[in-house]
């Protein structure tokens, strides 16, 4: 007789941690946003007072990440398994990986300027997870009881996190090179232009985005292969054109297209940046719409 011990009280505590992390993310997001708006100011005195805000933002972001991580670990303990078996858990774990990669990358490369995006994105994801995706701890259905859950999904989370940062850089790149931003006479756009002027130059951003995306692509390819190996065991075929399999494949081809665009003269730059954004939109679509509204075997949201 198989039995399993779930701990809903602990899951409740984990949820409190996640909510607390959201508060701190909000504070970090506001610091970064104010920092940017100050930097964009035309007055020198205001600009020079900005760096304190940025430092405060990074400290806040790190604190948020620690609380967030504690929430993720507690969720895993309360379910006595890895915390990424439904949409809620995938969201909290995935966004934790995003912030971890960002903080680690920060130690190597100066990518502070997308901190606003990372803090805002995590806030959005956690908010959606807590209000829409929340489910109490559940046991795994037998098809999911496999070590492949650890490998396949963990790598998918990692790939998503890398693509996420790659897409953030691509968005910044698009704005920076956009003609309407450059030419507009609106005051708001002018402020925005000054913020963009603070970002690294276009080439640098393009290359950074590319580097995050190639790592994402390698991890995504691995996810695809690991998924096929697992499907061969659990669903008696390695590939069955299940909706999620189809979309994983679509995303893979989009990023393959992105790599080719970068290797082709005349297609790098804006066009490839758009491809990176399209790819990430497809990932979000795959995670939300395909999970919730399409019929298929990968329906693990736990939502009715």
């Amino acid at each position: 007789m198989t039995s399993i011990a779930l701990n809903p009280e602990l899951a409740g505590i984990s949820r409190l941690f996640i909510q607390a992390a959201m508060l701190v993310y909000t504070a970090a997001f506001l610091s970064f946003a104010f920092h940017l708006s100050k930097l964009a100011s035309t007055k020198k005195a205001v600009r020079s007072s900005a760096s304190k805000l940025e430092r405060a933002g990074i400290v806040l972001l790190a604190i948020a990440a620690v609380i967030h991580g504690a929430g993720v670990v507690l969720r895993g303990i309360s379910a006595s398994r890895v915390p990424w078996a439904n949409m809620y858990e995938f969201s909290i774990t995935g966004s934790f990986v995003v912030v971890s990669i960002f903080l680690l990358a920060l130690a190597i490369k100066d990518i502070r300027l997308i901190a606003t995006f990372v803090a805002g994105f995590n806030l959005l994801i956690l908010g959606t997870a807590d209000t829409v995706f929340w489910v109490n701890v559940k046991s795994l259905m037998p098809a999911l009881q496999s070590y492949w859950l650890v490998i396949h999904v963990l790598v998918a989370v990692l790939a998503t996190a890398f693509f996420n940062i790659g897409a953030a850089l691509a968005i910044a790149y698009i704005f920076k090179t956009a003609k309407w931003v450059e030419k507009s006479k609106l005051k708001m756009v002018a402020t925005f232009r000054r913020i963009l002027a603070l970002f690294p130059n276009e080439d640098k951003m393009e290359r950074l985005s590319y580097r995050f995306n190639i790592i994402g692509f390698i991890l995504w390819s691995f996810t695809l292969i690991a998924g096929a190996i697992w499907a061969e065991r659990a669903w008696h075929r390695y590939w069955g054109w299940d909706t999620k399999e189809v979309w994983t494949f679509i995303i893979w081809t989009i990023y393959a297209g992105y790599l080719h665009a970068n290797a082709t003269r005349g297609w790098s730059g804006k066009r490839s940046a758009w491809l990176a954004i399209v790819g990430f939109v497809a990932i979000l679509f795959n995670f939300t719409v395909v999970n919730l509204f399409f019929k298929g075997l990968h329906v693990y949201s736990g939502l009715k």
């Binding site: 399993i4 011990a5 779930l6 037998p142």
Partner: peptide
């Protein structure tokens, strides 16, 4: 088949076939 009888939030979920 083992179904969960133990955890309130998980009653009736199959654990093993």
């Amino acid at each position: 088949v083992d179904f969960d009888l133990q955890n309130q939030s998980n009653i009736g979920t199959p654990l093993d076939f």
